[in-house]
């Protein structure tokens, strides 16, 4: 299955707020550490290296890389 690029969460604003909320009391370094752990947990949940690679490519593209 390719990377899902259409919105498919019920409450996008709530999801955004939840991710932001997790960072509220964190320093910049702690935020980076949290993001890394989140990537590891979600990548394992997805379970497909191809889908994760596609997500990485898409994310890098948005950085102009």
């Amino acid at each position: 299955m390719p990377l899902m690029k259409q919105a498919h969460v019920d409450d996008p604003d709530g999801l955004y707020a939840a991710i932001l909320e997790a960072h509220t009391d964190l320093s910049e370094n702690e935020s980076a550490a949290l993001n890394a752990r989140l990537v590891l947990l979600l990548a394992n949940h997805i379970g497909s290296a191809d889908v994760v690679r596609e997500a990485l490519t898409t994310a890098r593209k948005s950085l102009g890389k």
Binding site: A33, V39, L40
Partner: peptide, 24 residues
């Protein structure tokens, strides 16, 4: 690199409680 260290430390911290991370 900093990114490499953050990712590595994340794996080690998760490995203590999450089985999936031990394989990493």
């Amino acid at each position: 690199s900093m990114a490499s260290r953050i990712l590595r430390d994340g794996v080690l911290a998760l490995a203590a409680s999450e089985p999936f991370a031990r394989r990493l």
